[in-house]
Design a protein around this nucleic acid. Structure first.
Lengths: 230, 230
DNA sequence: GGCTACTGCGAACGACGATCGCAGTTATGG
DNA sequence: CCATAACTGCGATCGTCGTTCGCAGTAGCC
C-alpha cells in the first residue's frame, strides 16, 4: 500500500489505451506552475488544460503530491550532461551547478517553501544582524556578506535535511519513507547509477558516525573556502 | 492595501481587549506543526487549540500565509546570541550555524518544500550520478560525497533565491513584494541592525554587477573549501 | 464470445480558506 | 455622563479544493 510512483509501472494491459501519460500530465503541471505559481497547479486546472475531467487524473496519479513529484522529475530532465568528464572535477561540478541554477531560474516554484523568500521578520533580522556582524569581522565585502549568510543558512538546511533524510533511508519510519527506501533499494539493484548506489550503501553503513562532528567539519570548510582562510 | 504584517501595529485602541495576541497564535501554530506537520496547521485547528472560533483568527492575521510568517518568526526567536564576538568570526559563524541547525531539528517543517526530501526521482538520480562521479574524480570519500552534492544543490538554490529576492527588493514587482520592500526600508530607517541596513543598501546598489560571475566565484570557493584545493 | 481488467468521468463529499454582518464591549470626546 | 466611534468574538455561509465512488463503455485474453 502507498508504494512510490516510480515503482509502479506506467499503464499497460487490457483496457482501452490511455489518453495521456505521466509525461504529458507533468508537462501540463509544469506549464501551469511556470505561468502562475505552484498554487495554480490544481487537479482541475491540470485536467482542464489537458481537456479531461478532474477525476481522470487519478488514473495516472494517486494524489496531488505525486503529481508534484512528477513535475519535479520532469524538470530534472532538462539538464545537459554533455562535455562532462573531459576537464577536471571542479569544472564538472561547476557546470552541474550552473545547470541546476538554470533549472531554478526557469522554474522558481522549485524553491517554494515556508522559508522561500529572504527571511525578513523581526527575529530573523536579529539573526541576520549577528551573522553579518561576524562577516564584517571577517572583513568580507558587505555586498557579498548577505549572500554568504544565505549560503550558510542554506548549507545548514541542507545538512540537517540530509541528516533527517539519512534516518529515513536507513530506518523504516513511516510508510511513505519506507516507499522511498524501497525505491532506493531498487536503484542499488538496477546497477546503473553505480555512484549513487555506493553513496546510498555507505550512507547506510556510516549511520553510526557522529553527525555533529561531521557538521562542524563541513561548515568550517565551507566558511573558510567562502570567506577566506584564517 | 496588503501591507506586511510587521508594519501593521499589534492591536490597540478602543474596543474590548483582545483575547489573544500574535505570539500566542504563533505558538499554537508551531505546536501543531511540530506535532503533525505543516498540513495540520489549519485555521480551524489553530482556533480550536486556542478555544476560539476560526473566524476570530482573522482579527489577528489577514491570511493563513501571514500565520505561517508569524510561526517562522516565532521560531527564529529561539536563538541564543550569548558569547558572540568574544572569539574570532569563524567561531561566531559556526555557533550561529549550530543554532540554526537546532532550529531546523526542532521544527522540521521549516524545511518543507517541493524539493524538501532528498530528490530520488529517475531523472534526479541521473543528476546525482553525474555529480557523484565528479566527486569521485576529486577522490572525496563516498560517505561525504552525497552530503557534498546536497550542499552544492542547496548552495545553488540559495544563490538563485538570493538573486530572485534581489529583484524583489530592488524593484516594485507585485504588491506582496512591495510590502516586503517597505519593511526593509523601515529596518534601514529604524537604525538598529546596522549591518542588515548596510547589506540591504549595498544590495540595492550592487544590482548592476554581474550576478553570473559572482555565482561562479562563490560556487568555486565553496567547492574548493569543501572538497579540497587543487 | 464471454470474462476480465482496464478506460474516462459525472456527481458528490468533506475539509479548507476566507467573507460578511451582527451583537456585545470599551475608550474617547464633548 | 453619555453618545459616538472603534473595536471585539463569532455564527453562518460561500466558493474551491483534493479525493472517492460507481457506472457505462472498451479492448485484450482464453
Amino acid at each position: 500500500m502507498a508504494v512510490s510512483i516510480w515503482l509502479r509501472p506506467e499503464r499497460t494491459g487490457r483496457g482501452p489505451s490511455p489518453a495521456f501519460d505521466r509525461g504529458r500530465i507533468a508537462a501540463a503541471g509544469v506549464a501551469l506552475a511556470d505561468a502562475d505559481g505552484l498554487a495554480a497547479v490544481t487537479m482541475r486546472a491540470v485536467a482542464d488544460s489537458l481537456g479531461a475531467a478532474p477525476a481522470s487524473l487519478y488514473r495516472y496519479v494517486a494524489t496531488r503530491d505525486e503529481l508534484l513529484e512528477l513535475m519535479v522529475d520532469q524538470v530534472n530532465g532538462d539538464v545537459s550532461y554533455d562535455g562532462l568528464g573531459a576537464g577536471d572535477w571542479l569544472e564538472d561540478l561547476l557546470a552541474l551547478a550552473r545547470e541546476a541554477r538554470e533549472r531554478y531560474r526557469a522554474h522558481p516554484w522549485l524553491l517554494d517553501g515556508i522559508e522561500a523568500k529572504i527571511p525578513l521578520g523581526p527575529r530573523a533580522t536579529d539573526f541576520l544582524e549577528h551573522a553579518l556582524a561576524a562577516c564584517a569581522a571577517a572583513s568580507v565585502e558587505p555586498g557579498t556578506a548577505i549572500e554568504a549568510v544565505a549560503v550558510i543558512l542554506a548549507l545548514v538546511g541542507a545538512l540537517t535535511r540530509a541528516e533527517l533524510g539519512r534516518r529515513a533511508i536507513g530506518l523504516t519510519d513511516s510508510e511513505r519513507r519506507q516507499a522511498k527506501s524501497e525505491y532506493a533499494a531498487q536503484i542499488v539493484k538496477a546497477g546503473d547509477h553505480p555512484h549513487v548506489a555506493a553513496a546510498l550503501a555507505s550512507r547506510a553503513a556510516e549511520q553510526a558516525t557522529d553527525p555533529d562532528a561531521q557538521f562542524d567539519r563541513v561548515v568550517t570548510r565551507v566558511l573558510i573556502g567562502l570567506l577566506g582562510g584564517r
